[in-house]
Amino acid sequence: MMKIEAIEVKNLSKHFFPSMKERKRIRMQQEGSEKGTKNNIIQAVNNINFSVKQGEIFGFLGPNGAGKTTTIRMLTGVLKPTNGSISIYGGNIWKHPIEVKQILGHVPEEANVYMDLTGMQNLYLIGKLYGLSKSERVNRAEQLLKQFELFEKGNLKAKKYSKGMKQRLLLCMALMSNPKILFLDEPTSGLDVKSSRIIKKLIKEYNENGMTIFITTHDMDVANELCHRIAIINQGKIISLDTPDNLKKLTQEYLAIDCHFIDTVNVNEIKELHSIIEVQQNNSLYHIIVKDINVALIELVDFIKTNDLNVKQVSTNEPKLEDAFLKIIERGVEN
């Protein structure tokens, strides 16, 4: 039997028809509009294809307004696609909404907990809506609240929670039914360091136990650290899909080693080494462009020893996901 993908998306599109007022506005400033406005239709998501494998953390990145949230809303059965198909483990969310939604969990971007219910009551409500029995509800709610360090505040109304606590409660709510696929829209946005660390750690743990995770974020470090594969969407189209390492390679134009020397070094002397192409000096920092990292390091160490130099810092220059992301977004228009 062919392996069923956790999520498979084919030719997915979502067009919004602007209201009369908006249409007037669009006509007024035709050139300023961001999204394709053929016949005044706003193409929020435009014919995208991708699949998410069972058990992976799939990152979905893009600028504000690129179509990320619209896509998540279609995948979770909130918005009806204009076109295309979504299959969740082979099931169609619009034909069997209840069965399919039963295995999904969703953490939306904005904190949509019931502010007037306590943390515990919020979880019980979700438990009921997913058809958990009473004992399951109680056990699971307690277990999750403990796991997310909210147990002591379980009987406090959610409006008294801090931002980080609300975000953790949202995660608890999404995990109540022990979903097979978890959707996370900006899980660490605006949180302090501690809350985002707790959340990142637990995302990893749940994934290691087999949960498929679909995540959007603006934080490139989070994406780099967590995601197995990353799709980049811009203006409603997917313009890149690969592993973080492969994406980063896109911006790596050359290999380089950055050295901080305590003593001043003659740039020309370094240049004479075999495996070194170019050296740029900026105060005590030497940006050394090399042919091969390993060979260059060995040569550099010899050089340091013979000249009796002292290094303060050595690091191989590594491309950043942020740079790759910006580059892809920029060139995306051409492709």
Partner: peptide, 25 residues
């Protein structure tokens, strides 16, 4: 849809009474 993924009791479990109970919630 696959019973393996969506639960064997599938349709029965998600029938009218279940929806009524959820409406009550």
């Amino acid at each position: 849809i696959s019973k393996e993924v969506f639960g064997v009791k599938g349709s029965k479990k998600l029938g009218l009474t279940v929806q009524l109970r959820r409406a009550a919630a």
